[in-house]
Design a protein around this nucleic acid. Sequence first.
DNA 1: GTCTATAACCTGATAGAC
DNA 2: GTCTATCAGGTTATAGAC
Lengths: 203, 203
Amino acid sequence: MAKKKLEEVDLSTEEKIKDAARRVFMKKGYAATRTRDIAEAAGINLALLNYYFRSKEKLFELIMLEKLAKFFGAIAPILNDTNATLDQKISAFSNNYIDLLTANPELPLFILSEVRANPERFVNKLPVAKVAESHFIQQLQEKRPDVHPLHFLMNVLGLSVFPFVMKPVFHASGILNERAFAARMEERKALIPKWIMGMLKTK
Amino acid sequence: MAKKKLEEVDLSTEEKIKDAARRVFMKKGYAATRTRDIAEAAGINLALLNYYFRSKEKLFELIMLEKLAKFFGAIAPILNDTNATLDQKISAFSNNYIDLLTANPELPLFILSEVRANPERFVNKLPVAKVAESHFIQQLQEKRPDVHPLHFLMNVLGLSVFPFVMKPVFHASGILNERAFAARMEERKALIPKWIMGMLKTK
DNA sequence: GTCTATAACCTGATAGAC
DNA sequence: GTCTATCAGGTTATAGAC
């Protein structure tokens, strides 16, 4: 059997639409996406989109739930591992999360952009409580009761995520190409734990 | 004379429209903004918007240029002050920039969201060269020739900016209210220089 | 300069044939 | 299940009266 050009050729129609919706929503955001774009990207007719998913809104919510689970789901388990030391948690996090984001570079900015554009939609729907009250937070409080633990959580997260958030800016500026960006992110896997452990000692 | 309810009542029509455009574009982004929203927010008629600014696109570009200048313009002068030490640059940056962002909390995510949604529009239009080739970068290279200077630039920027990027998420989660956020950001002004100077010593 | 009215087009969604 | 055709409503932009 000849190799197919598009990898989704053999998928069900429903999956073809979801696949296309992931690509188009991620690239342009909810507001700028037209259902016709998704239909075209899926290689199907516009009517089929509504046949399977009822509306643009419902389809978007489906995709968004997936993306939220991917973005937040990877954090809580690591930070709540009660057998891991602070150092181990930070290492595990930066390694795993940078891998996740390298495979899904537009994930953070997609979520952040949509939350900003439509905060009401996300009220009480963001699974961050497990992170904000994690075992990691407790360890931080023990280690440095003089500094609010949120600072260190923000830093671990930010040092890993922020480069991906800035990526479109660097790319549009022509400052940092794809290969160089990947190299820097690979270096950060080992650097971030050192930096954060240093912060925890800084008086 | 009685005090006016809205501060822009006495402005020229052109300024009223620009003021409204700033608010609406910043809140909803380009794609989700309707010119009718802007006209209504400005208290004028829809036709006047086109009379003064020709099109939604032109009006947006005007506002975006302002915002880009604000966001990037504050960085380069500090990082290119050839009389300042590394430590002084970092302190000046985190203090000034956190003040700027506290006064304009939606600024970073507005720009990042729009660049992501429409990268072509911004190619060669982002004034970041003066930052990427700054005196600060030279100092970093001298101090730590073993680590790519972009890491430290990214960290100084990220530690200041990332909390504002995450703000909508924290807010929608109910984790962090306005007052607590402001308190943390005030603390970070002094913390960030310590953290970064620590990083520069970490082997 | 400012308004109302409307043109010209676009978008999400559905009806109905196959 | 899948398509074509089309509806209903919304959106940008302009014409023309005042």
